[in-house]
Write a protein that binds this DNA or RNA. Structure first.
Lengths: 197, 197
DNA sequence: ACGGCTTTGGACAGATCTGTTCGATATCAC
DNA sequence: GTGATATCGAACAGATCTGTCCAAAGCCGT
């Protein structure tokens, strides 16, 4: 998944990349606190010493894991929005991307919501989640502005709730349907909010 | 909070109840895997032997913790709905209760969503979350039917997404506002869905 | 007051966790 | 090849975790 450094596509990935791939899968699937370092290095096929040489500790590994998740998801969303022309279509495209995300067999909810569930305030997980939330809010606010909504703040808040709702419902009920349900409500709030253009 | 057995209100609570009060606070605030048994028994002021005599192990303590959370929340919602007369008002009442929940200083999201974040499939947490989800869906579906919606299934699905969205957004952004935002969208979907009566 | 039950405190076992250390080995640039 | 660097393997330390055990002390109904 999320490659951190620019590694040539040839040969076997570096220890760092194998570590990141393994921690991504394990942390996401089973939870950050649930998974020990030993599980990660075993899956990555990397010596424990290398992990502490490369990352310095579990905390930094977690940080990088969340950073890469953030980065990868931003890129997916960006690509989805690029394929749409007008702001309204871009907003809907975000929820389309959510739909394909939910349909992935290993979907287990938003990594940041899950990390927050087992994070103490001020922990690396909490800080990463804060950055992610900032991005989400900026994304929907700028889209709401671009869409020419009379109250972009209101529209953005609604979109955030629908985004989070789709995510959580899909995770808890193990179905991709909430993406469609949320998209319907997105159309509703878009229609209810008056446009300038 | 959630008292499990019928204990007289006099004197100091039983070891079992102190254990449940402590685990409720610790598990909810810091996560289930994050908190060890020692923390729980220390906060409860109970010997470790008592815990294993009363509950048999951490798993059963977790089960009871989640069971009581489910029970307590059901009662709050029920009381809120009882104070409303028509189905539409009952639906809105659920989101009002969410609002006061979010405003509580120790709100940290839905206990079942958080538990699922660190739970493996088939674990006690996962099973408890499944029961909770069943209740949520039944609740909104029966309310949708009672409200005379043309497609109660559709309305119920929308309400579930709005419920989950309000919860998650409030948790992640540490604000009670999503209850109001969601309530606005609830009115929207209620108005869009045609009524028989 | 007595007997049954709960609870206590603390020691103990075994597993697992993070993190450290270090000599041996693989890899790669030159 | 040679040297620098990355990585390995494995043992080790110290903390923490769940769970067990048991004799002593407290509590409660009768």
């Amino acid at each position: 998944m999320a490659r951190s450094s620019v590694t040539p596509e040839t040969k076997k990935p570096s220890a760092r990349d194998r570590l990141l791939a393994a921690s991504d899968e394990l942390f996401y699937n089973e939870g950050i606190h649930t998974v020990g370092i030993d599980r990660v290095i075993e899956k990555a096929g990397v010596a424990k010493g290398s992990l502490y040489c490369i990352f310095g500790g579990k905390d930094q590994l977690i940080e990088t894991y969340l950073f890469n998740r953030h980065q990868a998801w931003m890129e997916v969303v960006q690509r989805g929005m690029d394929a749409a022309d007008d702001p309204r279509a871009k907003i809907l495209a975000v929820f389309d991307e959510l739909g394909t995300l939910f349909a992935a067999p290993d979907f287990r909810g938003c990594a940041f919501v899950n990390a927050t569930a087992e994070a103490l305030p001020g922990s690396p997980e909490d800080l990463a989640a804060g950055k992610f939330r900032g991005w989400i809010h900026e994304l929907f606010f700028s889209l709401a502005v671009a869409a020419g909504a009379v109250s972009p703040r209101v529209l953005a808040d609604q979109l955030v709730v629908l985004y989070d709702g789709a995510n959580t419902t899909a995770q808890m009920d193990k179905t991709a349907a909430p993406a469609v349900v949320a998209k319907g409500m997105v159309r509703m709030v878009l229609d209810s909010s008056s446009y300038v253009s």
